[in-house]
Nucleic acid binder design. Structure first.
Lengths: 135, 135
DNA sequence: ATATAATCTGTAATTAATACAATTATTAAT
DNA sequence: ATTAATAATTGTATTAATTACAGATTATAT
C-alpha cells in the first residue's frame, strides 16, 4: 500500500503518521504471517539503520489501540500481530509452526456466546497439521 | 479429591505421584478459576513452607504433558492453567478480568476447521462483560 | 535395604515487554 | 516559511514470566 494511503488511514483513525508507524504497518500488511514484535524489529532494522525496539512496541500498541492491528495470542511465548482485523480464526501447524487464517464470521462466534454474557470480541484458535505438512 | 485417587490418576497417566504434583493438581481441581503459576505458587507456599517456584512450573508442565491439565492463553501477560481438559470455551470479563468457562463441543469446533487441515485441538476465547458486571 | 532414576530446590540466566528521560519529529499557528 | 507546543522516538535500565542447571532429595523396583 502506498505511503499516502497509509497516512490517510492513520489520520482517519486519529494517530500520527510517523515514518516508523508507517513502516511497521506496511510490513504487517505485506507479511500476512502474524509476525512477532521481534520478527518485525529484525526485518525493519535491516532496512532502517536506526529503529528502536521500543518503537516497535510503541507503534504496535498505537496500531492496536487505533483498531488497525490485532494481537494474536496463539503462542504462549510471545505476542503475534495481524493487520487483518476482520473476523477470522487462526490455525497453527504443530509441524511447521506456521499460522494460517481461516474464515469464521462473528455471527457464528456470537451464537456460541453463553446467554447473559455481553459479547465484545472473540477468537478461535486451532492446532493440528496444515495441508502442506499433512502428506 | 482424595490423595489416593489422584495417585491412581497419575499412575494411569504415567507420571510419578510426588507430593508437589499432588498439591498442584489438588489446588487446580479445587480452584476452577484458571490460576497462573504465580497464583498457585503463592497459595501453596502458604501451606507448604518449602515449595520452589521452579517446581510449580515443572509440575504444571508434567501435568500438561500427561494431558491432565491444559494451558489457557487468554491473557498475554502470563499463562493460565485449567484442570478441566474437556471441550469448553473461555470468556474473560473486561471489567473484573475473571475467566469463565462455557460449553463448546469439539464437534462444533471441528466443523469450523477448514478442509485440508487436520484438526487436533481447538480453543475459543471471548471477551466482553460477564453477567455480574453487566448491570 | 539399596541402587537407580526421576524429581525438587534455589540460584542464575533468559526473554518479552515496559518505564523513563533526553532527543527528535510532527503539528498547528503565526 | 518559522516557530512554539505537543507527541513520538531512542536507548538504557528495569520488570516479570519462565527456563537452565547442579547438587540434594525422593520415589521405584530389585
Amino acid at each position: 500500500m502506498a505511503e499516502t494511503e497509509i497516512t490517510a488511514i492513520f489520520e482517519k483513525h486519529g494517530i500520527r503518521p510517523t515514518q516508523q508507524r508507517i513502516a511497521v504497518y506496511s510490513y504487517l500488511l505485506a507479511q500476512r504471517n502474524h509476525p512477532s514484535a521481534d520478527t518485525i524489529y529484525r526485518a525493519l532494522a535491516d532496512i532502517y539503520p536506526v529503529f528502536s525496539r521500543t518503537t516497535i512496541y510503541n507503534s504496535l500498541n498505537a496500531l492496536v489501540q487505533a483498531g488497525l492491528v490485532r494481537t494474536v495470542n496463539i503462542c504462549a511465548e510471545e505476542q503475534r500481530f495481524d493487520a487483518d482485523v476482520d473476523d477470522h480464526g487462526h490455525f497453527i501447524c504443530e509441524k511447521c509452526r506456521e499460522i494460517f487464517d481461516f474464515e469464521v464470521s462473528s455471527d457464528v462466534l456470537e451464537r456460541l456466546c453463553p446467554t447473559g454474557y455481553r459479547f465484545s470480541k472473540g477468537d478461535v484458535f486451532f492446532s493440528g497439521v496444515c495441508p502442506g505438512c499433512c502428506g
